[in-house]
Simulated scan of single mutants.
Amino acid sequence: MLMEMVKLLFSRYSEMVPPNRTNFVEGDVSDQTGKVFLVTGGSSGIGLELSRILYYKGGRVFIGGRSETSFAAAVESIKSAPAEGCENSKVRGTLEFLAMDLCDLTTIKHAADELLSKVDRLDIAWYNAGVMAPPAGSKTKQGFELQWGTNVLGHFLLNKYLSDLQMKTAKNAPRGAVRTIWVSSIGHNLGPKPNLINIDDVNFENVSNPDPWVGYGQSKAGDIVLAYEYANHVSGSGIASFSVHPGNLKTNLTRHQGIWGQKLAQRVLKEPRYGALTELYAGFSDEPIDNDLSTKYIIPWGRIGRMNETLNMALQNEDFGTKVWNLCEKQVAPYD
């Protein structure tokens, strides 16, 4: 028991303060010409850097976001500055905008339909977009707690529309090559007790002065559960479904932290490329692929880590994951 506790503490410290070396970099990814990728939130931060790499590997990259203006700026940034190690490469992909607002579930079907009308495959989806610790009481267009509605329900509904296409793609692909990546965070440990998700009150309607950080933790625990449960739903299809903590990084996720919080973040956090490499590892590394295509929780900068033990036990020993999945089904049903 003591040794297991030491391992857990070391794992958590290593996740918070990862080594400077990276285990998986741009050069580890082969030419991806002909492959189709989706990156939500791909116009800024980690998503932008991930999209940059995919473009210079020849991928057809769909960037999901709210603003076509932001997308245009991202395209300019990507085309003017190659990904590291790709400066002399002649390979180029394409970048395409997919209009969606994850905090408005009524926009998801239109975005999915647009993608489905343009492609006949989807190799990897990175559900990367998110919001962190907004002002207390923030809601989505449908009245859900903003972080639960955006980080969990928006991606859950999008994935529901795209799952059949990924299963079709997996039929003609090597086992584990088609992947769905659910971006979580070390912040999932902040979720409400006992199991990090308050299934009976995910909107904190019965909590006075709800803490936005607890809400953030709940949403990121939700992403881990969705990765786990989705793997169960597509078991035998060859699709890999992983959750990933990309790292503590300089992105616009810190925009709600005030001027001093943002100044501190700029001093102590890493550049977004590191997070992109973590997500790249989750998408392309062979290391997480074994007899079990689920349950992998990827940590910086491309390693298999350990999710919160309480959450892990709930997923292993109870029908907790099924309850969370069914709750999401119920909440998105009016917009399906």
Rank of each mutant, 00 (worst) to 15 (best):
P212F: 07
L146Q: 14
S117C: 07
Y216N: 04
I298S: 02
A112S: 12
R303K: 15
L196I: 12
W148C: 01
L315I: 03
A170V: 11
A227Y: 02
G65N: 02
A231W: 03
S43M: 09
A265G: 14
R121Y: 04
F204N: 05
L253V: 13
S89D: 05
H155W: 01
S43I: 12
L277A: 05
S14G: 03
D200I: 09
V6N: 01
G137A: 08
R306F: 04
A276S: 13
E15W: 00
H245W: 09
M313N: 09
W148H: 04
S235M: 06
M307T: 06
F320V: 10
S294L: 06
P174A: 07
G41M: 01
N206H: 15
L95W: 03
G261T: 12
G47R: 12
E68F: 01
I298L: 05
G85Y: 05
W213K: 06
D120R: 11
S51R: 12
V268F: 13
F144K: 01
G217H: 05
T94C: 07
I181V: 15
G85I: 11
N248C: 11
K220T: 05
S51T: 14
K330G: 02
S117T: 11
A111I: 12
R175Q: 09
F62D: 08
S43A: 15
N151K: 06
A333P: 03
L157T: 11
L158A: 10
W213M: 14
V332F: 00
L146R: 12
K35S: 13
D223A: 12
T106V: 00
G58K: 02
L98I: 10
K79T: 15
M307Q: 15
G64Y: 03
T140L: 01
A276C: 09
H233S: 10
D120N: 15
G149E: 01
N252S: 13
V207K: 07
I124W: 11
N159E: 08
K296M: 06
D31C: 12
I304C: 04
L226N: 13
F242I: 10
V131P: 10
R66V: 00
G321K: 01
K250N: 10
R66S: 01
G34D: 13
A83D: 06
I78K: 09
A99R: 13
G154H: 02
R60L: 05
N20W: 08
A83H: 06
A136V: 14
M167L: 13
I53N: 00
E84A: 09
W148R: 03
G34P: 13
Q142A: 00
E145C: 02
A177W: 05
I78E: 03
L157Y: 05
G65L: 02
I78M: 10
T180K: 11
S185Q: 08
T140S: 01
L54T: 06
G191H: 09
W325C: 07
E287Y: 02
A83C: 06
N203E: 08
E318H: 04
L253S: 06
P334F: 01
W148T: 03
Q331M: 14
S235N: 12
P272R: 04
G143P: 05
R121I: 06
E49N: 06
G59V: 07
D120K: 14
F71P: 11
Q266F: 02
S77W: 01
N308P: 00
S163E: 15
L153A: 00
L54N: 05
V207F: 02
T180W: 00
N232L: 14
G47M: 14
G302P: 07
V214E: 10
F62E: 07
D319A: 15
H256N: 15
G42F: 00
T40I: 13
